[in-house]
Design a protein around this nucleic acid. Sequence first.
DNA 1: TCTGGGGTCCTAGGACCC
DNA 2: TCTGGGGTCCTAGGACCC
Length: 425
Amino acid sequence: MKNKIFALIDCNCFYASCEKVFRPDLKDSPVVVLSNNDGCIVALSKEAKNLGIKRGVPLFKSRGIIEKHDINVFSSNYTLYGDISARVMKTLTLFSHDIEIYSIDEAFLNLTDFKHIDLVKYAQKIKETIYKCVGIPISVGIGETKTLSKLANKIGKKYNKFDGVFNIVNHPAKEKIFSFFDVSDVWGIGFEYTKMLHKNNINSILDLVNADDVWIKKKMTIKGLYTVWELRGDSCIDLEKYIPDKKNILSSRSFGSPVTSKKELAEAIAYHITLACESLREQNSVCSFITIFFSTNRFKENEPQYMNAKTMPLLTPHAYTPDLINTAHKALDLIYKSGYKFKNCGVVLGGILPLSHRQLALFDDHGIDYKKTNIIKAIDDINDSYGKEKIITGAFKYNKSWAMRREYKSPNYTTNWNELPLVKA
DNA sequence: TCTGGGGTCCTAGGACCC
DNA sequence: TCTGGGGTCCTAGGACCC
């Protein structure tokens, strides 16, 4: 399809920007945000980037530079980021109802209907509005396809003179731009494909655009071919306007400190089942099998290593937390070995289908167990209204010995009455 | 001492069926 | 005992994304 226009809106350094919204004192200060368990640096403000800090590096390796420059460190606060993200997305719908929320900090807008107005001005208006209403800086890239809008966004962000907005639609210097950027800058070309393309002397985006279709399909599957077509201006990847149901739901986490007993591991697994089940019921689905897994710390080469996983089928697909915990604990009995220091564990709910589609087992005379359905619905309602984990199963405790570290967490400014920001006038 | 978590899609190959 | 083609379903592995 030709003649479409897409915009990709991307929140700049999203997590770090969220931490700054209610901390005006940090406006021009370096900020970094850590992964779960305060492990790695996953987001940095531009001031932190300028100091040479890198994304993905473990916190302990950056300690020196953090202390030297007095950098502000935050544990990740997904409650806050999720709420601010929702505000950004809602504000974006003022500018086009044709929107795909692509991730927590990105959205595609279909701007085809706006092709006769000054798109750069329109994008600047979007940017100003989001900053004014939500306090988050964004960049906007505009292109004939989603892939091109991603590239345009990267360009707008990279060069200060564009002020975060770049339009590549019918750009007179498109070929020059393509020859300037590397294939790795393209959405959909990751580390492995970059290596492969470079080896075959395809280095710039221009080389890729001029590559042979049959060869691309053979080497990079149909998806790679779509990427190339999109770079040529032919839109193959459409907006996904509704959020599809998840096909797998995973909950896993590293432990705050090593776990050495089966009891603790069983508690942690019960906790993950609880989380995963909540999100399963949220989409009105049931699962047909569950997988549990755990492992020791692979970075500790001198300690004994053991990792294992076990999948258990369910006779009748369901989403009832206590029964799933029982099944998970049976799986644990089958593969647990003592004498190890475990570092993480998790569960996957698979074979997910809508509640309405579930097949009952041949001899399952109850079909739907209304008592269980009502109990779990009541628990969900209470937890929704009064806050997470107000009612939990006895299979894990409130004071989780294995819980993750979050030493530097900011308040939930926007979602908890007790943590509202204070303004002194 | 300290190294994230949560997803999707595509393809090849094997098992099985008619 | 050996032979053929066509199809589906499932799974593992590999790639990608944020």
